[in-house]
Amino acid sequence: RRVTVRKADAGGLGISIKGGRENKMPILISKIFKGLAADQTEALFVGDAILSVNGEDLSSATHDEAVQALKKTGKEVVLEVKYMK
């Protein structure tokens, strides 16, 4: 599913991630910080795999590559996510 997140002037997306190619895992949302941008969408969940950020494929990204992709986003971020059981 596709989720658009609008960041506030102060603060980032409000998520922590884990996983990555070096761990043989997808990039997973490991924490959502209450009240910040990702939480306010009410459409992102701990355990979601982030498949892409603004069209940039993260399916084979390392953890560091995913962190950089998320950091360089502007005010509006489009995440392609899939819930992983």
Rank of each mutant, 00 (worst) to 15 (best):
K85Q: 14
I27E: 02
A8C: 07
I15R: 01
T62I: 06
G74E: 10
G74I: 04
A66V: 02
R2C: 09
K82V: 11
T4D: 05
V5F: 07
L51D: 07
L79S: 06
N54S: 03
V67W: 10
D39W: 09
T73F: 04
L70P: 05
K71D: 14
T73W: 07
L51P: 01
T4V: 15
V46F: 04
K85A: 15
S59A: 09
K7T: 15
F45P: 07
S52N: 08
V53M: 04
E56F: 11
K72R: 14
L79F: 08
V53P: 04
T62D: 04
S59W: 07
D9N: 13
V67M: 12
F33L: 09
Q40F: 01
A43V: 04
V81T: 05
Q40C: 11
T73Q: 11
R6Y: 15
G14Y: 04
G11Q: 14
I17Y: 00
R2D: 02
G19P: 00
V77I: 08
M25P: 03
R21P: 01
L58W: 05
N54E: 03
E65P: 01
P26R: 03
V77K: 05
T73K: 07
T62E: 06
K7R: 10
K18T: 15
Y83W: 09
A69Q: 07
V53I: 11
G12N: 12
T4H: 09
F33P: 08
F45R: 14
K72S: 14
G47T: 00
A43F: 03
K75I: 08
K85S: 15
N54H: 00
A66R: 00
A8W: 09
D48M: 02
D48S: 03
K72C: 12
G20P: 04
V77M: 09
K18D: 09
I50R: 01
S30E: 13
E22I: 03
I27G: 03
K72N: 15
K34M: 06
G47S: 01
A37S: 08
P26H: 01
E42M: 11
V46Y: 00
S16E: 15
D48T: 00
R21T: 08
L51W: 05
A43M: 10
E65V: 05
G35C: 06
R2T: 13
A61T: 07
K71S: 14
L58T: 06
L51G: 04
A8P: 15
G11A: 12
D64W: 12
P26V: 02
E42G: 15
G11P: 10
N23W: 14
I27C: 03
V77T: 10
G11H: 12
S60C: 12
K75D: 14
E80I: 08
Y83S: 15
G20Y: 03
L79K: 06
L58H: 02
D64F: 11
V77D: 02
L70W: 00
G47C: 01
A38T: 08
G74R: 08
I32G: 03
S60W: 09
A38G: 05
M25C: 09
R1A: 01
K71L: 10
R1K: 04
M25D: 06
L79N: 06
L36Y: 10
R2A: 06
V81H: 04
F45V: 09
G12H: 09
G20T: 00
E22F: 04
A10S: 14
G47W: 02
S59Y: 05
K82C: 11
I32K: 04
A43Q: 15
S30W: 06
R6S: 12
V3Q: 01
D39T: 01
G47M: 05
S16P: 04
E42P: 06
L36H: 13
S52G: 08
R1L: 02
E56A: 11
P26I: 00
L28D: 05
M84I: 11
R21S: 13
K75W: 05
I27Q: 00
I15D: 02
E22R: 03
V3G: 02
L13E: 05
A66E: 02
K34A: 10
T4L: 13
S52R: 10
L51C: 08
T62N: 07
A37H: 03
D57N: 08
I50E: 06
R6Q: 13
L13N: 01
V46H: 04
I27F: 00
L58Q: 04
L36D: 12
K34S: 10
K24C: 11
A66I: 00
K24Q: 13
L70C: 04
Q40K: 15
L28I: 15
L51F: 07
A38C: 09
A38D: 05
N23A: 12
K7I: 14
G20Q: 05
K31R: 11
A38V: 08
G55F: 00
K18P: 02
S30D: 14
H63P: 01
K72Y: 11
V5D: 00
I32L: 07
G35H: 07
G47N: 13
S59N: 09
E65G: 05
K82A: 12
E65N: 05
R6P: 08
T4K: 08
V77E: 07
S52H: 04
G19K: 04
M84K: 09
A43K: 13
I32R: 02
G20K: 00
E42C: 12
D57G: 11
R1C: 06
M25Y: 11
G74C: 09
G19C: 01
L79M: 10
D9H: 14
T4Q: 06
G55P: 01
N54R: 01
H63S: 10
L28P: 01
L70Q: 05
E80G: 07
L70T: 04
K31E: 12
F45D: 08
V5N: 00
G14P: 06
G47P: 00
K7H: 12
F33I: 12
L13G: 01
V53H: 00
D39G: 06
I27Y: 00
K85T: 13
G55I: 01
F45H: 12
G74H: 10
I27V: 08
E65S: 05
A37T: 07
A38I: 08
A69T: 11
E22C: 05
E56S: 09
K34Q: 10
Y83K: 15
D48P: 02
V3H: 02
E22V: 03
L79D: 03
G14V: 01
K7V: 13
Q68M: 11
L51Q: 07
N54Y: 00
V46P: 09
S30G: 07
F33N: 14
E80H: 08
S16K: 14
D64G: 11
G19T: 01
D39H: 08
K75F: 07
K75R: 14
K75G: 10
S59C: 10
L58F: 08
A61P: 02
R1M: 06
E65W: 01
R6H: 15
I17P: 03
D9E: 15
K18I: 14
H63V: 14
I15Y: 00
D64T: 10
R21M: 08
G14M: 03
Y83E: 15
K72Q: 14
I29E: 06
K75Q: 13
K34R: 10
K34D: 10
D48Y: 00
K34G: 07
D39C: 05
K34N: 07
D9M: 13
G47H: 02
I32S: 02
K18L: 10
F45L: 09
D48G: 02
K24L: 09
K34C: 07
G12M: 11
A38E: 05
I50A: 02
V5K: 02
N54A: 01
A10T: 15
D39R: 04
T73D: 08
T62Q: 03
I32D: 04
I27D: 03
T4E: 08
I29A: 03
E65A: 06
A10Y: 11
K34L: 06
G11V: 10
K75V: 09
G19V: 03
V53K: 03
G74K: 10
K72D: 12
Q40L: 11
L36C: 15
K31H: 12
N23M: 11
G14Q: 06
L28V: 15
M25T: 10
T73E: 09
Q68G: 08
T62M: 02
F45C: 13
S59G: 08
M84D: 13
V53C: 10
K31N: 09
I17K: 01
G19S: 02
K85Y: 12
R2P: 02
V5G: 01
S30M: 04
Q68F: 07
L13H: 02
A69W: 04
M84Y: 15
S60G: 13
K82T: 11
L79I: 08
L28A: 07
Y83R: 15
K82N: 07
I15G: 01
A43E: 12
A61G: 03
L79W: 02
M84G: 12
I29Q: 04
D64I: 12
Q68S: 12
